[in-house]
């Protein structure tokens, strides 16, 4: 079920990239796609009824969900945050240089 949610979120992100003219909305669409893919990764390792992958006295039998996707998603989240912060910094510079975030007005200003 959760697979469908992440596929729908990716679709919304791609639609936002193709249809919106504001550059900030492009960045939000990128964030949406990132989040959708992270959701997908976590859901691939999830097994219904299993426990968190931590060894303790309460879990003598290793009845765990797959811990590797969770480790991967941590790295992916950190990378995504870095790219988003860089994009936001560039948006500030675009606003300083062109005075607008609208794609069409920026293109007109370039010519």
């Amino acid at each position: 079920m959760i697979y469908y949610i992440s596929i729908i979120l990716i679709g919304i992100g791609v639609y936002g990239l193709l249809s919106q003219k504001n550059l900030f909305k492009h960045l939000i669409s990128l964030a949406l796609i990132d989040t959708a893919i992270n959701l997908f990764i976590v859901s691939t390792g999830y097994i219904n009824g299993k426990e968190a992958p931590i060894y303790s006295e309460f879990t003598p039998i290793a009845n765990f969900v797959d811990p590797l996707p969770q480790a991967l998603v941590l790295t992916a989240i950190v990378i995504g945050v870095g790219v988003l912060a860089l994009g936001a910094a560039m948006l500030i510079k675009i606003k300083e240089k062109y005075g607008t975030l609208n794609v069409e007005e920026i293109r007109r200003g370039d010519k």
Binding site: L17, L27, L30, D34, T44, G87, M90, K97
Partner: peptide
């Protein structure tokens, strides 16, 4: 900044799809 931002958006999405490919192969 505009060229760099365009590169960032398309590069970010392609990076996400590369990650998805990696997960599919896992």
């Amino acid at each position: 900044p505009y060229g760099a931002f365009k590169y960032l958006i398309i590069g970010g999405i392609s990076g996400s799809f590369y990650l998805l490919g990696t997960i599919f192969s896992y």
